[in-house]
């Protein structure tokens, strides 16, 4: 991802909500990081690829074989 940044404005109310959320739940170092993550998630939903990589698929198949399904 490019490191070039642009500036956008959001309401103070939303900013404070995000800040409170981060302080309560952790996982993000800043409001900017949270917003970038959420936006990326929303946009990536439309172009989501397969659920499993080849390697993941083999892991699941091995497990399903042991469980008796394959």
């Amino acid at each position: 991802m490019t490191s070039e940044k642009v500036t956008i404005s959001i309401s103070k109310e939303v900013y404070d909500k995000i800040l409170k959320y981060i302080q309560t739940h952790g996982g993000f170092n800043s409001v900017e990081e949270f917003i970038e993550f959420v936006i990326n998630e929303v946009l990536s939903e439309e172009t989501a690829g397969p659920a499993y990589s080849k390697e993941d698929e083999e892991k699941i198949k091995e497990r399903l074989r042991a469980l008796g399904y394959l």
């Binding site: 952790g26 996982g27 892991k59 699941i60």
Partner: peptide
Amino acid sequence: DFFTPSIESGFTWPPFVKKE
């Protein structure tokens, strides 16, 4: 659920819950 390939996989939503 048990279809989670491994603990390296993104098996929680939101993702940061996995760490917890």
